[in-house]
Amino acid sequence: MAAAAISLKGASKTFGSDRNRVDALVDIDLDVGQAEFLAVVGASGCGKSTLLRLVAGLLAPTRGEVLIGGRRIDGPDPGIGIVFQTPVLLPWRTVRRNVELQLDIRGISTPSARQHVDELLNLVGLSGFGDRKPYELSGGMQQRVSICRALIHDPSLLLMDEPFGALDALTREQMNLELQRIWMETRKTVLFITHSITEAVMLGDRVVVITPRPGRIMEIVPVRLPRPRDFSALRVPEFHIACDRVRELMNAAGFTE
């Protein structure tokens, strides 16, 4: 059997010490398969962002270990791309140059990589915007640029930390559909953090529910819905059953929306 794309073994993360000690995550055991779309939901401050930062190698686990492609990591793995809640674009670079930032920093200078920028901008519906500056774009468009930047070096893992949390509801639904399409075209392994139950169930192959303080995996809910899922496909009972199950778990964990 091939190694899991992401594997956490007894991973725990504690912040501070003694009286100010916060157990953000406790004993996380989780395997994410190749090309799987794994959604993680939980209340604010339940440690779901910490989970993403452990996988990204931005934080080191206090106990346990994190493996990517079967290898234990002790820093950001070369094969990851991250999308944060804010687009974090550099205002002095054009859209194209912002996407290329990833190549500049990693020292990738092949002409094919540069050509790939156009394909990616096309993929997210931003062809023709390459020479614009970020502040000329709407919030949704800025976040698409940051998705391109996360994909330009062809990573095997796409880590997304509430990427659409700052967008309005309509743009958010639009972006959900687009992300699904991008994922189906690129077949990356996606770790998707969100606090929206609908978003998690709509996008995820499985939905991991995390309890707040200390953060533990409460249950993993499989979502067996055919793809591509669009909003009409979400009228089926299976979608609502999965949503209800996730909501039940979150309520049981003492989460109030």
Binding site: L58, P76, I82, V88, Q102
Partner: peptide
């Protein structure tokens, strides 16, 4: 911002 620095770090 923290996310900007994390982005830089994630790019190694």
């Amino acid at each position: 911002e923290r996310e900007m620095l994390e982005l830089a770090e994630s790019m190694r």
